[in-house]
Design a protein around this nucleic acid. Sequence first.
DNA 1: CGAATACTTGAGTGGGGTCAACGCAAGTGG
DNA 2: CCACTTGCGTTGACCCCACTCAAGTATTCG
Lengths: 249, 249
Amino acid sequence: MDLVVEKLSRHAALSPTEIRVLKEAFDTRRVLEPGETLIAEREPPRFVGVLLEGMLRREKILSSGHRQILGLPLPGDVFDLHGFLLERMDHSIIAFPRSVVALAPHSAVLELNRDHPRLGALLWRDGLVENAIFREWIANCGHRPGPSRLAHLICEIYTRLAQVGLTDGLSFAFPLSQADLGDAIGQSAIHVNRTLQRLRGENLIRFIGGRMDILDWEALRAAAGFDPLYLHLVSTDRPTEALLPLEAV
Amino acid sequence: MDLVVEKLSRHAALSPTEIRVLKEAFDTRRVLEPGETLIAEREPPRFVGVLLEGMLRREKILSSGHRQILGLPLPGDVFDLHGFLLERMDHSIIAFPRSVVALAPHSAVLELNRDHPRLGALLWRDGLVENAIFREWIANCGHRPGPSRLAHLICEIYTRLAQVGLTDGLSFAFPLSQADLGDAIGQSAIHVNRTLQRLRGENLIRFIGGRMDILDWEALRAAAGFDPLYLHLVSTDRPTEALLPLEAV
DNA sequence: CGAATACTTGAGTGGGGTCAACGCAAGTGG
DNA sequence: CCACTTGCGTTGACCCCACTCAAGTATTCG
């Protein structure tokens, strides 16, 4: 959970009490095997989670039979907050590689929000960033020119992993198959293959054995038209006052 | 504001105090002329809003110059909750026709959540439904077959408008141009035109003068592969216990 | 070592994009 | 009242991006 505490602390220092309350709420651990479903479409959500290790995907099967990947929770991300007031899941959450999650029952999160509203707001903030990512994916699957889409996804994953210290320079674990990539950006796996070859041919990336190496970040960023604004990272040029001063709530 | 009170009341009865607190928080009115920007990308969000009349669009200009519409807040919808903990807007919000919004400063919403957590949770719920809509739009712009996309958007708008009583049978105001429709579903305006003609030719819809008439709901729904699960409507088959009993928070 | 899965490559095709022109209605101003 | 403009919708011609089908090649795994 230290990963999560550190991530939340970037926006407002957590008191020892808040850290304790947070850890007590998310006291359940669950290990997911590769491909295991954490929760399926139409099931009632029973908990809020944070991913500690591995990688998850949100997915939905369309009436045409196609699969659409809706999002990729990474370690440190809070997920299912989106559903904790809703009756049923509108999509499934599935583990890519072996993953570890920490779970909190909804009642614990409601209590946490009631008794420590500032901590609740920080958890919400994390969920809000994911919503901004959803919106960016609409643009990525929509009007963004074809070849840029894949580059954009790579830029996003790299930037998000770097935020939680899970990159090694410009290299990082990337456990998606070409079919997965296609379902994430709304293209066929075969076309993803050809686009990958192009990115490789232009010496922008190397991608073998589940590991992605970015060889030319600036060129990749330009090809993607990637602007990290939507990730709402903590940056040095943001307003100097704390996001959530203690007196705010 | 009665529209909003009624909408929220569907999920848990509001006490007279909660209704008063809600109305006091959203005490500012603002009228937007057609095409007027409520808030632009990169600006710091200053308020939470609910739309009372008209229609808004969330949009983003991509590096390619293309415009992508990310969402369509309708009357009764809470918006910008998504941004009330974030430093800058990652997209713009613009009025389609003349629209009226009610605004609450962030401090009022933080206070509301602190002092009336159940009311805060109901507002959050509305935001969560919008997130589910974002996810569905990813699928709509992504892997959904072409002709279904337009039909799906029409089904969604109809269903959401019907929820707040803004439909007249199967007829409703629909102030989007074909260019807007294209930017919403990730297609060119010209192709939208041809798809519209097809839907008209099959006697599924009539669409003139900013008004949409659905002529054959079941056929349109089938063409779209539309399943309203993601709208998280209040339905008769949901769990009988109240979503947010008073003792929950 | 076979079986399954993932990746690669080629050939053929069609959906949807772009460009360009035109129709039509609603303003607008002389 | 008419000439001009502006915005939106419609239609045709052309073409390319990306999909599908199909076959072949690693690579992993029981």
